[in-house]
Simulated scan of single mutants.
Amino acid sequence: QRTEVLEGAEFFSAGQKGSSAMPHKKNPILTENLTGLARTIRMAVVPAMENVALWHERDISHSSVERAIGPDTTITLDFALHRLTGVIDKMLIYPDNMLDNMNKFSGLVMSQRVLLALTQAGVSREDSYKLVQRNAMKVWEDGSDFKTELLGDAEVLAALSVEEIEEKFDLGYHTKHVDTIFARVFGDQ
């Protein structure tokens, strides 16, 4: 939800106050609260794990811990899940900003795929890294386009065809299983 990224954000009602120091900010107060609640829930892990060490020799030291962490943790978790459901239901998503942010560095986000393709084509890992880095640095230093640099590099073209390089810049590769993931999480609806 960072102002300069703005890919997704918590719902912010009209008149709601954000940052006390920076009025333009829309602080994600619900998710900040969830982060704190997660810490509270996690604090039950250590006493629960310490109970396991002597599980076969239970005594009052076990039950006294369980009487506290059992209800406190489950009530807090129930509240946190209810709050998270509300956050997700009202979440604001900015897909254009996502795409703009991803394209901000002219294809550099695809450098790992190119690196792996070079190694799979038989180029050593060290040489592959040098080839990719050499072309990536031109993007940082000159503002050029990463794919264009790769397509103009004779050493890269000796290992990968133009089609193989083009394929490494296909965004669909990263989203090809989205429908499957959603179906697994939410079921067939």
Rank of each mutant, 00 (worst) to 15 (best):
A53K: 15
L54N: 04
H56S: 09
R58H: 02
I60E: 09
I60V: 13
H62E: 02
R67S: 06
R67A: 08
A68T: 06
I69V: 15
P71T: 02
P71A: 10
T73Q: 08
T73W: 05
I75P: 05
T76I: 10
L77N: 09
F79C: 09
F79R: 14
A80E: 10
A80G: 11
L81N: 07
L81A: 10
L81S: 05
H82M: 13
H82Q: 14
R83I: 15
R83M: 15
R83Y: 03
L84E: 04
G86P: 07
V87M: 04
I88W: 00
D89N: 12
K90H: 11
K90M: 13
M91I: 13
M91G: 06
M91Q: 11
L92I: 14
I93T: 04
Y94M: 03
D96F: 00
N97S: 07
M98E: 03
M98Y: 07
M98F: 03
N101T: 06
N103I: 03
N103E: 14
F105C: 07
G107I: 11
L108V: 11
V109S: 04
V109Y: 05
M110L: 06
S111P: 03
Q112F: 08
Q112W: 01
R113S: 13
V114W: 03
V114P: 01
L115C: 04
T119N: 09
A121F: 13
G122I: 10
D127K: 15
D127P: 00
K130S: 14
L131H: 09
V132T: 14
Q133N: 12
Q133P: 00
A136G: 13
M137L: 15
K138H: 06
K138G: 01
K138F: 02
V139P: 00
V139M: 06
V139Y: 04
G143A: 07
G143P: 01
G143V: 10
F146N: 10
T148Q: 03
E149A: 12
E149K: 05
G152F: 03
A154M: 02
V156E: 00
L157D: 01
A158H: 10
A158D: 11
A159F: 08
L160E: 01
S161K: 01
V162I: 08
